[in-house]
Simulated assay, not measured.
Amino acid sequence: MIPLRKNIAEMDGYVPGFQPKDEGAWIKLNTNENPYPPSPRVAEAIRAELGDGEGLRKYPDPPSSAAREEAARLYGFDPAWVIMANGSDELLNNLIRAFAGEGEEIAYVHPSYSYYATLAGIQGARVRTFGLTDKWELADFPELYEGKLFFLTNPNAPLGFTYPLEFIEELAGRVAGMLVVDEAYVDFADENALPLVRKCPNVVVTRTLSKSYSLAGMRLGLAIARPEVIAALDKIRDHYNIDRLAQAAAVASLSDQDYLRGCVEKIRQTRAWFTGELRVLEYGVIPSRGNFVFATPPDRNGKRVYDALFERKILVRYFSDPLLSHGLRITIGTREEMEKTVAALAEIG
C-alpha cells in the first residue's frame, strides 16, 4: 500500500476550467482569460532576454528583484513590501503554509475561489466558510474571527460584485489572524485595498498578471504586505520560483500602464454592453467588476444553457454547486465574440 498522508489520500483535487485542444475552433469564455494579447513590450523583453539562449543555462535572479522593484514603483511601496510569485496561487498556498499549521483553521466566503479549500487540505488545515446574504453581505460573521487566515476574493469570483473599502477595513479589525484580499480581478474594478496594507498590519493583498495583463500562460503573481510578512513568504517559496523569461515579461508588462488601461477599458465597455443584452433576453445579471459576468437564464437552468452553448462551440463556466448551478460565469471576450454569444443565447432561448 502506498503510504500517502491521510489528508492527501482523502481530498479531492481542484478541477480547472476545460481547455480544448483545438482552441481555435471555440469561443473560449470559461477561464477568464483576457481576449487581447499582452503588451508588445512583453515579446520584446522575452526576445531580448532569450538572445542566443546563453542566459537560459544560468539560474534566474532568485528574488525577482527587477520585477519587485517595478511593482513597488507602480504601487507606491518599498520593494521590501512586495514579493513576486509563480502565479498568485503560489502566494495563496504559501500564506497557508506560513500561517496555518495542521489542524488550524482558515476561512473564506462561499461562493468564491474554491481552490482555497484544496490548498488548505494539502496543508492539513481545517476549513470554515461563510455564506452570503441576498445583499451580498457576509452571513453570520463573528465579532472576532479567530482563525489563522481569512480569504476575501474582491471582486468576488464567480459572482463579480465588490466589497467597499470601508467594509474591508472594518473586516480587518474583526479578523484576529491575517486578512488576505485576493484581488485577481481588481484592475477591472473601481478601487482596491492597497491603502489598507499600510493602515492594517494584518492585511495582505494578492494580485495576478493572468487576467488584466494577459499573461495567464506565464504564471505570474505578486503580493503586497508588511515587510515581516514578505520576509516569511520569501523563506518558503521555491528559491528559483520565476524563470528568466517570466521575470522579463513581468517587468515589461507592469511598466506599460497605458496599454493595460486601453485593454481594461475595452473589456469594461464590452462588459456593460453584454450585460445589457443579457437583460434584454431576461437573464438575471449581477453587476460585475471583473472581466466576467454571472448570468442566470429565465428558467434558472444553467446546465441546459451550458450544454447548448457547448454544442455551438462556445465555452462558458458551469458550476454544479447548488448555490451556483442556476447560472453561468461568462468571461468577457472581444465584442465580436460576445455578439456571437448573444446570438446563440437568443437562439437557445
Rank of each mutant, 00 (worst) to 15 (best):
268 R>L: 07
229 V>I: 13
250 A>W: 04
266 K>E: 14
241 N>T: 12
231 A>L: 12
240 Y>G: 04
291 N>M: 05
258 D>A: 15
269 Q>G: 01
230 I>M: 01
270 T>R: 03
241 N>M: 02
275 T>E: 15
262 G>M: 15
274 F>H: 02
257 Q>A: 07
275 T>L: 05
285 V>G: 06
272 A>Q: 14
251 V>D: 04
233 L>R: 08
239 H>L: 13
250 A>G: 11
290 G>C: 10
273 W>E: 09
281 L>I: 10
240 Y>L: 14
264 V>K: 05
268 R>V: 04
287 P>H: 13
271 R>P: 08
248 A>I: 06
292 F>W: 15
260 L>Q: 10
243 D>Q: 04
292 F>V: 12
291 N>T: 01
268 R>G: 02
250 A>F: 11
257 Q>S: 12
245 L>C: 01
266 K>Y: 09
282 E>N: 08
233 L>C: 14
285 V>Y: 01
256 D>R: 07
240 Y>S: 11
270 T>F: 05
254 L>C: 04
228 E>A: 02
246 A>G: 05
261 R>G: 00
253 S>Y: 01
245 L>G: 05
280 V>K: 15
287 P>L: 09
240 Y>K: 11
251 V>T: 00
263 C>S: 11
230 I>F: 06
235 K>S: 08
254 L>V: 14
265 E>P: 04
271 R>Q: 06
239 H>F: 07
290 G>I: 08
263 C>H: 01
275 T>F: 07
265 E>D: 09
262 G>R: 15
275 T>Q: 15
260 L>H: 13
263 C>Q: 14
280 V>Q: 13
261 R>C: 00
287 P>M: 09
263 C>Y: 00
266 K>P: 07
270 T>W: 08
274 F>V: 03
236 I>C: 10
229 V>Q: 00
274 F>D: 01
286 I>D: 13
235 K>I: 01
277 E>Q: 15
258 D>W: 12
261 R>Y: 03
249 A>C: 12
241 N>C: 06
269 Q>S: 08
247 Q>Y: 08
279 R>S: 00
241 N>R: 10
272 A>K: 12
229 V>M: 05
262 G>S: 14
257 Q>Y: 14
268 R>E: 06
292 F>Q: 12
232 A>K: 14
234 D>F: 09
267 I>M: 11
247 Q>T: 05
243 D>Y: 14
259 Y>N: 07
269 Q>N: 09
271 R>Y: 00
229 V>A: 00
264 V>T: 07
273 W>S: 04
234 D>W: 06
276 G>E: 12
279 R>K: 07
276 G>Q: 07
277 E>D: 05
262 G>K: 15
290 G>A: 15
263 C>L: 03
